[in-house]
Each structure stands twice: as C-alpha cells, then as structure tokens.
Design a protein around this nucleic acid. Structure first.
Lengths: 349, 349
DNA sequence: CTCGCACCTGACAACGTTGTCCAGGCTCTA
DNA sequence: TAGAGCCTGGACAACGTTGTCAGGTGCGAG
C-alpha cells in the first residue's frame, strides 16, 4: 500500500527503468515530500535525526534528483550551449575547453554541437539548445544572418558570438584581430624583400577569411605592390584544392616567392607542397600549429589565442547572466607574430 | 483578460524573460491547448485551417517548445553525455566529434565535460549528467572505481566506457589494442637492431599506460633482452619531466639507442629533446601526431583511430538504447604501425 | 499554568508539456 | 432520413520538483 502505482498513463516501454522520486524517498523515510527536498538541497531547518533518516532512504533507493523537473520549476538550467564549427579542429578544442572551465566555475554544464560550417545546421543546433532552455549561448557563426535568434534573446537567452561577428543582429562579439594580424604577417614578408606574395584563404563569405584577405591587400597596398589575381586563392580549404592553388602560384614565369596561408589547415597543406618544392619559398601562416618549431625551417605564424577567445566570450556571457543587461560590445583580441624561420627566408628569384 | 497572471508564486528575478507557452499560443489562436501540442509535434488530426491559425500564433509570439517540460513528461531527453579527459587534447577532439555525429544521426544532443584526469571530477560530472537524465553516458574513465554508476545503470542509463576499461563494474568497453600496439612498435625497433630501448609513459594507474608498458616488456622479453630500470620512466607526462627522463636515458655510459614514447604528448617532447641531441636516436611514438610526416626524419608511430573509438562506443550505446539489454561486451580496435623514418634508424652506438 | 515564540514539518499548487478519453459535428450508407 | 462511424478538438491528469503557507511541537518566560 505504500507503493503508489506510477506512470499508469504512459505507454509501456517509453521509459527506461523506474527511478525513485522524492515521493518514494519520503514514503520510505516516513517524512513529507518537502522535507526530502530540503535535505537534498541542503536547506536549513531539518533536525539532524530527520536528515539522517532521509539520507538513508536516499542511499537505499539510489535516488538522484531529476534536474529536468527542477529546471521546469526554477526556470534556469545551469547549462550553456556552444555552437562551433568542428570539435575535431585543433583550434576549437582549446576554445571549447576554455568555455567549459568558465562554465564550471559558474556551476554550469556545457552542451556543444558542431555546425560543420553549415548555416542551416547552426540554426537547427542553436534553436535545439534554446528549446532545452540553456541559460546562454556561445556561437561561432557559420551563417551570416542570426535574426532567427532574436526571439530567444528577447526571451532572455544570453548570447555571445565568438571568432566571427553576428549577422544582422546586435550582440556581443569576441574576435581576433584578423585584419591586423594578416596585415602584419604580410608586412613581415615584404620587409624581408618579397614582392610576389601569394594568399591562400577560405571562402570570403566567412568573416575571418575576408578580414585576413583585407589585411593582405592592405599590407600590399601599404608597400605599393599591385596584387595580381593569380596570387590569390579564395575557396574551400580541402587539401586537394589548396595543393592545386599553391602549385599554380609556384609555377609559371613569375612565381610567388612567398605564401601567406589563411588558416591552420591551409598552412599544413602548403607546408607539404613546399617540402616537395625545389626552390625555397617563404611562408607565414595564420594560426599556430603544433610542432611548427620543429620543422625545417620552423614555421612563422600569426598566432591567435583560442583559449582566450573562449574564456573572454564565456565570461562576457556570465556577466550578462549575472549583472543583467549591458549594451552589446565588440571585443577584439590581439594576435602575435611568431618568427621561426619560414617567414624570414629571402626571396629566391 | 485573456492573459493569465503567471509565475505568481516564484520569486521575482529568478526568471529571465517571460516566454510564451502553449497555453498562450492556444489563447491567441483560439484553440485548445492540446491542439497546439498536436501542431507543434506534427501529429495528425488537425485541419489545415486550424493548423495555419496555430502556426501564425506561434510565429507572432515567438513560441518555442520547452523541452524540459517535454522531457519531464516523456521520460527521455534525447541527449547523451560524454565524460572525457580534456577536450583540448587533439586525441579527444575527433573522438568527441565522432560521438556527436552518431548522436546526431539518432536525433540526440551531446553534453560533454572534461574530467581533467581527476577521478572525483569524473564522478561529479557523470552524476550531474545523470541528474539531467541523459539517456546514455559515454565515459573515458579517469578513476578506477565506477560502482557509483551502478544505481544509474540499473535505472536505465545506457553506459559505455571508451579508451580505458570500467573499474569494478561490468559494462561495455571499447578499447584500442594498447598492449599489441606497443609490443609491435617495440618489436619494430628491435627488428632494426636496437637492444637498449627506452620507454617513457604515463602513470601506470592509467590503464592505457599500463598496457603499453606491458607491451614494451613483452617485446623485450620476446627478444630475450633484459630491461634495465633506468630505461623506463613512468609518471606524469608534463614536458619538464619527460625532458629530464629522456635526457637521463640518453646520457651515461650505455645510453639507449631508441625510445618508445607512450603517448602523443610524450612523443612531442621527446622529438624536441632528440632534435637537440647530436647522435641520432630512433623513435616510435604511440598515437599519431599532425605533421609527423614532415619532420626530419618522419616520426614512426603506432596510430590508434580516435574517431573509430568514439563511433564504435556511441553506436554501441544506441544499440543498448534501441534494442534493449545485451550482455556487456569488450571491443578492442586494432592499432596501425606507420613507418616514416624515425623508427627505422639503426642504432648508433 | 498559560501564552508566545522559534523552529520543524507537511499539504498544496504550480512549472509547461503530453497521453487519455470523451464530446460534438460531419460524412456515408442503408 | 436515421444510424453508424470517423474525424477534429478540448478537458483533465500526470510527469517530479520547489515556493508558499499554515499547522504542530516544545520550551522558556511571565
């Protein structure tokens, strides 16, 4: 008689197991439901003796509070969402980890998903996270129109964009100085005597790619060097395409003597191509890569701090959550040129 | 009058925003609550006209279903948890991504957290995920006692361990052939004439580290080579410690002529040490590393397939969820020796 | 001895959704 | 045209938790 028949109305087989609830614990401990809730949440006002009885019942039944119900009642989930491009990319791992650490410090869990650079999938993911009622959202945009998030933001979902700016809405953004970094990197090559400098970057619809291209053009312009179309490759950064682009630039009557690589994936492929190439070619890459210092020559890069991006964004997110609303801000983090040899090679005409 | 006063009993300020509910949508569309539910879930039995009215109300109000409430009612969350060591480690990124892809194919979201190799934090995380009522759990163990998960598993949380076996409970496990891989790698060095071979690995309390050590010993034993203590370093794999260990092995009257590195982090540090070292020393590393082929010499490794580990584990998890209970199984994935030069160097006595 | 107070405890409603079940209106057939 | 059957729509309870509030107990002071 102590046991109530539960889940009488749900279809059989939809549930896995039959977890004890506070009600069950209360019955077993011979106390009221609310008293169990008090013990579970460490609220004051429970006799040590009562508390012990409840604890024993919890142990005996293997009870664990159902946070879904708690969320429903309390309105906050203590979890935040992260939408990024690809967890397997060595750039996003540390970023994600940094977001997680900040979340952890605020007692929140991190739910993340990869958009695979697909705007639709980004939207699908972000909205799924909102349906789970995450308290906040950190987004590395794949698309360029985020108006679909407006109702969510109005409803109180804290939102910060990282690495690339939000499209068509006003929101917090944390970026690296892509323009300045690329400009500095290319200027470095020019300072070492290069004039025919190739640029291999991602599709210009991706903000970071466009900014880096802009930096390249600015540096060339600063030096009064007219850029030839055949020096630039803007498109997908899969190895085959990058390889072909690099080989094209390096052949012909007036080949480039240096290459600026637009991101870590491009850099790796270009290194491979250069390794097979007879004449030495200078290289500066955007993003640092592991072991870059051990190659011959070491790879000069414009490094951005992925962890700092993630940390900054997450902290900004929790400031939104804790402190109420602040005006959206655009934060730009500096990049750092790390010289290791490949960027200091003189032109070999 | 149409608007009901809601959240009358909750403390002010606990909620962010005031999201519309199905009730609000129903009121606006002039239909019943359940009809809205039908439309939202694409259930049949709604007139096109009614559906249109409901859709309009949804648009107008910016309604999004509250999945917390849905979970509470339905009992399944369509999300799985992943507890790993460190998202920033290039080994776990692809693993995590593979789990995510499988989850996505099953319509589930992935919640993950890093244990930072701390058993307590692993437990805390895993139980937090259970409190969120994830349908399943993929765990890369940090600790060696997982009895704390027993009540959860009994309650129906599907569970699979990856990379390292579960401790003191019977559960599905997906592993790489650490023993065989290490044994093969060391045998490879022996086949190239080495006898004094160093081993630098992680703390033996970590299962993978212990297995790889066992493989090393077995290979040496097979060749009838007695192992000297000074050839082995078992401990934390931070760069300083590994560097010192490597330098010790390489000095003295009878230095090792080859090194077997127990994981990717160790390999990287050993490469650095060897690069500064005059005499050539052979090297085989466990785990593949990016750019290993571009170093001089290329780095020979025993590669494991992180993505395959993750995929296999996740598929196993969903088989548990879909097909009901199966007997726990231990799945071992093969490793692959990739020769690139460093492992084929002859001994330089 | 009684009143007041502090402290514990439990009944109850509500969070937003979905499953069940029934009512009413329609069509189709005899 | 009446009855049977189907389709649409809505009322209601339940999921497991927490906030509110009121009842009950024990103790000290007047």
């Amino acid at each position: 008689m102590a046991e109530t028949t539960r889940r009488a109305d749900s279809a059989p087989g939809t549930r896995y197991g039959n977890r004890p609830t506070m009600k069950d614990v209360a019955a077993r401990a011979g106390v009221g439901l609310k008293t169990v809730s008090r013990v579970v949440n460490g609220e004051s006002g429970v006799t040590p003796d009562t508390e012990r009885r409840v604890q024993e019942a919890i142990e005996a039944l293997g009870f664990r509070r159902n946070d879904s119900a708690r969320v429903l009642r309390k309105g906050r989930t203590a979890s935040i969402g992260l939408v990024l491009e690809d967890l397997a990319d060595p750039f996003y791992g540390p970023l994600s980890r940094a977001v997680e650490e900040v979340a952890r410090a605020h007692g929140a869990l991190l739910i993340n998903g990869s958009s695979a650079e697909d705007p639709e999938r980004e939207q699908e993911l972000a909205l799924a996270l909102c349906a789970r009622r995450v308290d906040g959202l950190v987004v590395i945009p794949a698309g360029d129109d985020h108006r679909y998030l407006e109702p969510e933001i109005r409803a109180g979902v804290a939102t910060v964009f990282v690495d690339r700016p939000a499209g068509r809405i006003d929101a917090d953004v944390v970026l690296s100085d892509n323009y300045g970094g690329a400009r500095g990197g290319v200027a470095h090559l020019i300072a070492h005597g290069h004039r025919r400098i190739g640029f291999i970057g991602d599709m210009p619809r991706i903000h970071t790619a466009a900014e880096r291209l802009r930096g390249y053009r600015a540096a060339m312009d600063d030096a009064g060097i007219p850029v030839e179309d055949s020096w630039m490759s803007l498109g997908a950064t899969n190895p085959e395409r990058v390889r072909r682009a690099a080989e094209d630039m390096l052949s012909g009557p007036a080949p480039v003597t240096a290459v600026f690589a637009g991101n870590n994936r491009v850099t790796v492929t270009v290194i491979r191509v250069l390794a097979e190439h007879a004449r030495p070619v200078a290289l500066v890459g955007f993003d640092d890569i592991e072991l870059a210092d051990l190659l011959q020559p070491g790879v000069t890069v414009v490094a951005q701090d992925a962890a700092a991006l993630g940390r900054t964004a997450a902290e900004r997110l929790f400031r939104q959550l804790d402190g109420g609303l602040v005006a959206p801000e655009r934060i730009e983090l500096p990049t750092r040129l790390i010289t290791r040899g490949s960027g200091e090679l003189p032109p070999a005409d």
